[in-house]
Design a protein around this nucleic acid. Sequence first.
DNA 1: GTTCGTCCTGTAAACGTTTACGACGCTACT
DNA 2: AGTAGCGTCGTAAACGTTTACAGGACGAAC
Lengths: 355, 355
Amino acid sequence: MCQTLFENVYESSYVTGIKALAQHLDLSIGTVSRALNGKPDVKAETRRRVLAAAKELDYRPNHSGRSLRHGRTNTVGLVLETGSPSTLAGDTFFMHLVDAMQETLAEEGLDLVLLPCRSADDPIEFLRRHVTRRMVDSIVITATRRQDERIAMLLEDGTPFLALGRSETPGAYPWIDLDFAGAARDSVDALVRLGHRRIAIAAPRRDVNLAHIYMEGYRDALAAHGLPVDEALILRASGSENGGVQVAEALLRLEDRPTAVMLGQELMAIGLYSHLAQVGVQPGRDLSVIGFRQSPQLRFLSPALACFALDVRALGKEVGQAVMALSADPVAARGIGRVWPLEYVPAPSVQPPVR
Amino acid sequence: MCQTLFENVYESSYVTGIKALAQHLDLSIGTVSRALNGKPDVKAETRRRVLAAAKELDYRPNHSGRSLRHGRTNTVGLVLETGSPSTLAGDTFFMHLVDAMQETLAEEGLDLVLLPCRSADDPIEFLRRHVTRRMVDSIVITATRRQDERIAMLLEDGTPFLALGRSETPGAYPWIDLDFAGAARDSVDALVRLGHRRIAIAAPRRDVNLAHIYMEGYRDALAAHGLPVDEALILRASGSENGGVQVAEALLRLEDRPTAVMLGQELMAIGLYSHLAQVGVQPGRDLSVIGFRQSPQLRFLSPALACFALDVRALGKEVGQAVMALSADPVAARGIGRVWPLEYVPAPSVQPPVR
DNA sequence: GTTCGTCCTGTAAACGTTTACGACGCTACT
DNA sequence: AGTAGCGTCGTAAACGTTTACAGGACGAAC
């Protein structure tokens, strides 16, 4: 029976993949495929045999073949920028986010791969190469800029994508971002409630998006409390530890020193604490400090730093679901725009000002 | 001319990929492919036209199709464990390593993708799914264990792989690892030279490989100096900041307190410093401390921590080259086993013991 | 004028899957 | 008895590429 298959045995000396399975079972590859994929029109006994043989021969379907046949790869890519110290990269926060994302995606049989984009790479060319008609069928971009050409490119290209971070690039696209404005507002509220009036703020350079929104929340909150905005109290520095040092230096140089400072990046606190310690200024007592995101690296600052907590795993799941919605209904997904809440966590670094 | 192509135009209303290019140019897809891939047997004028049209139509070859045709994907995967605080994940060190790796791989037209393996995943099943006959044609595993079943599986499977970290799993396979033994030796040497005799050591749990080698270097170096090994000075704790706290507590509990401690994980220093500060013990003066790897998170410790520096980018390039050697000559590559040097960086946290 | 070579191009098979379709045997109904 | 239906399975096309091979045009050499 089934001579064609025996012919194949003699034609190609070494067969592989599903064909080998079919030969071994003396079935057609079509039937084997159907059995493996749970299609209804296959006898229970046959399916059992196929599954057993697949396990025995350690059959694993070729990803390229499968992707080529369906129009999709069942893989979503998350591009992260190596080299440049972005908000997300090089952070346990990020690892947990990815972990939770993957958990959600796995439920739908989707894989997640991280695409490291070198700082030397052109981010546009990088996306072109990877995304469209390539390894992944949808993509998550991180560390969005206020003007982000990647978004314009992806929109034009029609590639399903999700932005982790807002942007002012025109067009409707799905994004999820942290509530920077809310964090700024809550910071101001907490400080004003304790009696602070002169509140400094530090944020990274202008081109990164969060700085802009964080600033806006700061101004709005001050206005809501009827307080003036003193431009001298608005400090610019990089978001790294070194930026914190610069902020501390700038603060101490001010003639009418503020009684509190809020930091728009979590790592700044480390440099700030360090420099304050050198000059004998104690956080909390001499200067109230509110950081940004909770981070394991901040847990050992003394006195403990007031900052904002968020449920990373829940965020990761939300991101994962948004990505899946992307594939399911690209049009509807374009309406997704979600601000993820940050919860203020009081700590001794914030105290009433000394008069 | 060329009626078959015109037939295609009317048959399928919407064509895509190289076929669309061919139609647009009124050429066969074979010729177009040859022109794009720089094959010699194509007229210069034709090649020019094809290249121009490819750019105009923004043609990007389908990865699945290409991979299916060649037996390879031109992609190497690096699996990193999310969730668990590994040596590499969640670290700017790691990002720089990836950056340098990618730079090297890009020269040969290879892509690098990061495969996040959830802590909940079975690492073996994860590898099976991704590596063999799938998205990547070679793989880099990180955070090797002393007994690592992944290595055994990959060896048996025949998948080209590189281990970032040694293992005692039998078999010849390529690996690159940091010189933990050398770091331990140099630490002991530096401390003994200053007059320290009772030197404590802290390292993570036994199952991770580096701890074992680090310990061995410690014992050997002590023996070389004719010093006894006091088992009470060998401390076990996790490699995290919390581990450092535990180490500090254990140190202070010892009846005959050592004058120095060496830490097998860079993050430990943070917790250690923090706890020492709480009880008024000053690093350097009261207890000399040598950390492990340099890390931006340690830069703001005071007094500055003595630790070990390494050229991350050079290491990344070495890893990249090793991966390429893997594909070129799998047999020869199995001999690769490289210990990457660590350079001792003195700092005020190490001083002569007070008598 | 035939033959040979060179240059260029088209043809078609192949990579490993999935799936629409048809074929076959069997049961059960009219 | 004929046929409709169902269950099961094989066949073959298709996904987008690459490439071995063949073939056509053309010029040069005999």
